[in-house]
Write a protein that binds this DNA or RNA. Structure first.
Length: 669
DNA sequence: GTTCTAGAAC
DNA sequence: GTTCTAGAAC
């Protein structure tokens, strides 16, 4: 706690009833435009607003959170709506506001999530700032604050969150809040989260944008809609009900353990996806149990959320966009019964029944089946759901088939199987969606299920490599021809210097196996070659260390390579090279797009394939790989990394991801 | 993957 | 004016 308030802020309930007050917590670093946002709304609004600004509240002295809480309470007591104008970037900084006022007023968050360089340049250039944060000092502070940024999440207790990622988002949000009359209320949910460039999903997104916009146009006229402009959430999201705890009477405490453990295990293995546990009632016991256990386990609340609402209307009513929803099905895969199963079949229409029949007749407890929704289904058009995954859990209800007679050893195993099968199904669906070409979307309704799948496989398999992208492939197939430039040739691989090295030492270990084009193709049968390529890489690192022990190395693959033929990058971490010229170069070695060889091998051993990261990571802002500071452009980044002596981040120091002269001797393979 | 270059950003 | 990025062509 930063402050010394003597008494807790208090609101009298009668005031709250007569006014639609709202408290808006702004979230953003210095320079993100929080104060400007508030001033713009306040000057245009018909509703009484008070801006509670920590920088200004201390009358010349540094303000405190306690003073802000008190001022917010006073304003709400007077029936005024409140902006909390402080950075609020960490969840902990927001909790007191939510805790003190959450039960008494609507609390919104507006996240001003503009690029770090924009915020920094605004801070550097401004004068006369209330908090006296301006000039060169600002860059350091903004950078530091952004490292601990935690995006606001509905499960903190916000009823509505608006994300603004650029000026036009900000403008739109200002307009919406300005137009809010004294008795208006904005619809709840999460708005404006979007991915910058999701090339693979573009077609689906484009289609979805259209239908969502049509659906929302009426609402927008009424001013009840959001700044949501139709673009999607950052990650594909699976919404699922709690399996077996309703009709099948499975013990809630045991079920919640299994949900949390299965989700955690899944999210550790699969990137760029999100899970949402959904229940209808805000008094849901299962949701509160799961929340409690999530917090205990420290699960990232951006990747696993709990959501109260109707699973068939998550987007239209709740503003939560889920590409895939799970259905707590019965073994006959038939509509009816009650609860979620009946609701989903009812909303999805006959189309879902037909599509389900094409896939499976029945379902065993502990298993699941994914059904693509025809584009004619209202669930697809209105909610943006592309697949329904039917899943069947264990039954503890004597009135229903397959009663387990209270055998929780069996029951827990089946429930675990059900969740892991559900999540795996979701991962494969999400992956296909990502790789889908626009052409395939057109084909969707014309062909039968089976041909569709074949098309997809062929589409993914037949990549279009340009002629320039075949250089490595040609070398691998005919090394004798290029012998002069090669460092080492074996039956399985070739080692050569990268033609355009991105660091002082940068070599490629190139597989010679025809048909193994890239990381995506690498499966269990390729483990021997992956291991021998890794060993070769480590051997070369040792040689380089004998020449220059100050170098550090990473060994890894690009998630999506530009050149055909699987190749392992062995690259020193100085990145001191004239060939490193652009953002893509940097981010391809310094974001999750670069998959460390040790992790790749582990993942293929355990799951049969390696995780791939999206190409959108290549567009990310430039951050130092050591101290994580942000930089506005490549020349500035390069001059920083030439000087930065910070230690490498902890995750690189684990599992021999980073090979330094001091630890390389310990590595025998 | 690189090179080239228009035009955005400074 | 110069610097830097990003998209097209190869």
């Amino acid at each position: 706690m930063d402050g010394g308030a003597s008494s807790e802020p208090h609101i009298s309930p009668k005031e709250e009833e007569s006014n639609r007050t709202v408290m808006v917590i702004l979230v953003g670093p210095p320079g993100s435009g929080k104060s400007t946002f508030c001033e713009a709304v306040i000057s245009a609004s018909k509703r009484p607003w008070v801006r509670v600004c920590q920088d200004a509240i201390g009358n010349g002295k540094a303000g405190t959170k306690a003073l802000c809480l008190k001022a917010a309470a006073d304003a709400l007591n007077e029936g005024k709506s409140v902006f909390i104008d402080r950075c609020n970037l960490e969840r902990e900084q927001r909790t007191d506001f939510l805790k003190l006022f959450g039960s008494r007023t609507d609390i919104h968050a507006i996240m001003l999530d503009l690029p770090a360089k924009v915020c920094i340049s605004r801070c550097v250039n401004r004068t006369g700032h209330e908090g006296n944060l301006q000039g060169g000092r600002a860059a350091i502070i903004v950078n530091k604050m952004l490292q601990n940024k935690e995006a606001p999440n509905l499960n903190e207790g916000f009823s509505r969150i608006t994300f603004c990622q650029n000026d036009s988002d900000v403008k739109e949000a200002i307009k919406m809040y300005s137009e809010l009359g004294p008795s208006d209320k904005l619809s709840p949910g999460e708005f404006g989260l979007k991915s910058k460039k999701e090339s693979g999903q573009q077609s689906i997104m484009k289609f979805f944008k259209k239908s969502a916009r049509e659906e929302n146009s009426q609402k927008e006229k009424e001013g009840t809609s959001s700044s949501e402009n139709g673009s999607g959430n950052e990650f594909p999201t699976l919404a699922f009900p709690s399996i077996s705890t309703a009709d099948f009477q499975f013990d809630l405490d045991k079920a919640s353990d299994i949900i949390v453990e299965s989700a955690q295990d899944f999210l550790r293995r699969v990137d760029n996806v999100r899970l949402a546990l959904v229940d209808l009632s805000d008094k849901s016991r299962i949701i509160s149990l799961v929340r409690e256990k999530m917090v205990k386990k420290g699960i990232n609340s951006n990747r696993f959320i709990t959501f109260v609402g109707d699973i068939t209307q998550l987007y239209s009513k709740g503003g939560l966009r889920c590409t895939v929803i799970a259905n707590a099905a019965n073994w006959r895969l038939k509509p009816g019964g009650g609860g979620v199963n009946a609701a989903i079949f009812k909303v999805a229409g006959e189309a879902l029944e037909i599509a389900t029949k094409e896939r499976a007749e029945t379902l065993n407890p502990g298993s699941s089946v994914a059904v693509p929704l025809p584009s004619t289904s209202p669930l697809y058009q209105r909610e943006g759901v592309t697949h329904v995954i039917h899943v069947l859990g264990p039954n503890m209800n004597p009135q229903r088939p397959n009663y387990l007679q209270n055998d929780y050893t069996k029951g827990c195993k089946i429930l675990r199987d059900a969740y892991s099968s559900l999540f795996e199904c979701f991962a494969s669906v999400a992956c296909l969606e990502r790789n889908k070409k626009p052409k395939l979307v057109e084909l969707k309704d014309k062909t039968s299920g089976e041909t569709k799948n074949k098309d997809k496989r062929e589409e993914v398999k037949s990549r279009n490599w340009g002629s320039w992208a075949l250089a490595l492939y040609n070398t691998a197939m005919d090394p004798e021809k290029y012998k002069d430039g090669l460092l080492e040739i074996s039956d399985d691989f070739i080692v050569l210097n990268d033609l355009y090295p991105k660091a002082r030492k940068h070599v490629l270990v190139l597989s010679r196996l025809n048909g193994l084009d890239c990381l995506e193709d690498s499966k269990r049968e390729h483990l021997p070659i992956l291991r021998s390529m890794h060993s070769a890489g480590v051997k070369w690192v040792k040689k380089f260390h004998s020449e220059d022990p100050s170098l550090h190395f990473r060994l890894g693959y690009h998630s999506v390579p530009s050149m055909r033929q699987l190749h392992l990058h062995v690259i020193s971490q100085d990145f001191d090279s004239p060939s490193l010229k652009n953002k893509k170069h940097w981010n391809s070695f310094n974001t999750a797009f670069f998959r460390d060889s040790v992790d790749v091998i582990n993942e293929i051993e355990e799951h049969g394939s390696a995780k791939l990261s999206s190409e959108k990571l290549l567009e990310m802002e430039l951050r130092c790989h050591r101290c994580k500071s942000a930089h506005p452009n490549i020349p500035k980044l390069k001059s920083h990394i030439a000087r930065c002596k910070a230690s490498f981040p902890p995750d690189l120091l684990q599992n021999s991801r980073l090979l330094s002269a001091s630890n390389n001797d310990l590595d025998t393979n």
